[in-house]
Design a protein around this nucleic acid. Structure first.
Lengths: 182, 182
DNA sequence: TTGCATCGTCAATTATTATTAACATAAATC
DNA sequence: GATTTATGTTAATAATAATTGACGATGCAA
């Protein structure tokens, strides 16, 4: 009967792009149970909730820490990136309004029709990047955008995500991760 | 039947210095239920666990983030504090082996027979300090030490704690908190 | 000792969760 | 349009959590 849990589970499940039946199958519970939980008409045992979250995957601690909202601040269009360059060198700052970020850099190339795989990525930390050349489809928490040169992204890495080159030529991006993966 | 939860609840409850019956009364559940949970012979509903944790108080996210072990590294005796001073000024470093700490400072005086109150303190962040003068009784996670001049402490502030001057003269300490409370 | 209070545990019952197996709806395929 | 396949919901049942009320053990006081 405790509110919150059902709504949170539904938000998380849809963010991972799974149906109730798919999630139930992976978790080893029934689809009906997930339906009842999401309607807050039952309070699941922590054992059941752990099985369900493990199938996403997600930890209990993350589940009960609701900073999972994508909140619109995911995509930053090229024209909206503030120029903080000085002198001859030009820097365009991504997600300038978000404080307390810790970063490091990667240079990536996606050949046509390649992506980060069937399963959605999800891990701790934050990540962001800028498309330099070509066209990149970005999916975060169930929302999909197609980015062109100069467009950028920034999100919490716990949100399930996927990158895909949907264009005819290689796509190149400059990306940043935290904590540093390299 | 999922291990972990029972042991964690017992650790947390005893750290708060409560009996099963006391906690059950505050939480609005039965003492038998808490006994069964702690033995991992049932998997409580998240509603029940939330009621129990709310009575401590503790959040679900904190409960499932088990960095709650006091682990012996709570009390640092005067003779064990490494001297990192340079030149005329002497600094003795508390908890030198623990990385990633963020600090700020307080100067406190406890008159004889005063303490931080009946209810145990518990909040986010970390705190540490050094007794400068007098005698201070420190209780953390159910363990009690009496510290004299030069002795020091350091612990996660989520562990329930209490300070008390058990001596005949004022007790003075230098303490540090994070995040800065002043 | 004896009595009294508190502790944690446990069998039996009650209340709730979890499963089974259906249903209704909507979108895709023939 | 009819058929199939997927979606989320729900009544009835089975399985499990939660309560009740007891028990033995321990510590303290009379």
């Amino acid at each position: 009967m405790n509110i919150e849990v059902g709504k949170q589970l539904r938000a998380v499940r849809t963010a991972f792009g799974l149906s109730q039946r798919e999630l139930a199958k992976r978790a080893g519970v029934t689809n009906g149970m997930i339906s009842l939980i999401e309607q807050d008409s039952v309070s699941p045992s922590v054992g059941s909730l752990q099985k369900i979250l493990a199938a996403l995957p997600m930890t209990m601690a993350d589940f009960f820490t609701r900073d999972m909202e994508a909140g619109g601040d995911v995509v930053y269009r090229a024209k909206d990136l503030p120029d903080v360059g000085t002198g001859d060198i030009q820097y365009r700052l991504v997600a300038a309004s978000k404080p307390d970020r810790k970063m490091s850099i990667l240079w990536e190339t996606y050949e046509p029709d390649t992506d980060t795989g069937e399963d959605l990525l999800t891990h701790s930390g934050e990540e962001g990047g800028v498309v330099v050349e070509g066209e990149l489809e970005v999916t975060v928490a169930g929302n999909t955008w197609v980015l062109g040169p100069g467009d950028a992204y920034y999100f919490n890495s716990r949100l399930p995500h996927r990158f895909r080159n949907t264009g005819k030529q290689p796509a190149r991006i400059v990306s940043a991760n935290t904590p540093p993966t390299i």
